[in-house]
């Protein structure tokens, strides 16, 4: 464990050095995500200029959900971005061999290799939106809810990571799975808005099959109303652990099926 931390620190330091070298790159990346998010908010703002509330939520409450949903997404983006590359080209080009020849866990190595600072854009927007909307969103604030707030975020982020690990691992069988990651990851769009606006079928999918609803709406429902912490928070933790377990199993099965590609 200590060794892993040390290796991680060295790899992140390498990433940061590169960042210092290409400051303009970092700025472009972070500003891009910032503007992308700002446009998402402009969209909600324009809708709310016409209606007082959406699915029973006020403007501030919707903004809170939107802002919260960016935090797990941003955390996962910051730490595990390299999984995209595994799916898109690392396996296809045969470059995955590199990870197998090193004396550290290949999954850990893949994840530790990239520290994607572009994610700062998502994190900053998410935090700002929550700070902006918190005073008038009617938050349910108790000592317990504050503790659960801090506790639930890493688990929500793990849902993203688990989904990416599982879909990236498909590349071990079919060489390139970028399109699968893209498709499944794209479902996170559903997390930005209250799940109640969707049809039952979609609700079922984003709750239990590709559980992005637990990265935004459900935990927020508890922080906004104080209702049903067992489901809204408990299930977030439970589902993220289950999904991480499943995705690790898929990853390991994939590793044993991996045959090097390329020449």
């Amino acid at each position: 464990m200590r060794r892993a931390f040390k290796i991680y620190r060295i790899l992140v330091a390498q990433n940061l050095k590169r960042l210092m070298e290409y400051k303009a790159d970092f700025l472009t990346g972070a500003v891009s995500f910032l503007i992308d998010q700002a446009i998402g908010i402009a969209f909600i703002f324009i809708i709310f200029s016409q209606i007082p509330q959406l699915a029973g939520f006020t403007f501030e409450q919707i903004v809170f959900i939107y802002g919260f949903s960016q935090i797990p997404k941003g955390l996962d983006h910051l730490l595990t971005d390299n999984l995209w590359c595994v799916g898109y080209f690392i396996v296809r080009k045969g470059d995955f061999d590199k990870y197998l020849t090193r004396p550290i866990n290949p999954l850990f190595h893949v994840i530790a290799e990239t520290f994607q600072v572009d994610a700062v854009g998502e994190l900053v927007v998410g935090i700002c939106l929550m700070i902006y909307s918190a005073p008038s969103a009617g938050l349910y604030i108790t000592p317990l809810s504050v503790i659960l707030f801090v506790l639930v975020i890493p688990f929500s982020a793990l849902i993203y990571t688990a989904i990416k690990i599982a879909t990236a691992a498909v590349a071990f069988w079919i060489k390139s799975s970028g399109f699968i990651i893209q498709m499944v990851y794209g479902m996170n769009e559903f997390a930005k808005y209250p799940t109640t606006i969707y049809s039952n079928f979609i609700k079922l999918i984003v709750t239990f099959i590709i559980p992005f609803a637990f990265t935004g709406y459900y935990p927020c429902l508890y922080f906004l109303t104080g209702e049903n912490p067992v489901f809204n928070i408990g299930c977030t933790v439970f589902i993220s652990i289950i999904f991480l377990g499943i995705s690790l199993a898929i990853w390991h099965k994939g590793l044993s099926a991996y045959e090097s590609a390329g020449s």
């Binding site: 959406l54 399109f179 893209q182 794209g186 769009e189 559903f190 930005k192 606006i197 979609i202």
Partner: peptide
């Protein structure tokens, strides 16, 4: 073609999110 399919399905998912959002609006 699979990447192409992925992007198309991603686009359609987005349309459906927007569809439900507008419906509730």
């Amino acid at each position: 073609r699979m990447n192409f399919l992925g992007f198309i399905i991603g686009g359609l998912i987005y349309c459906f999110v927007m569809y439900y959002l507008w419906k509730s609006v």
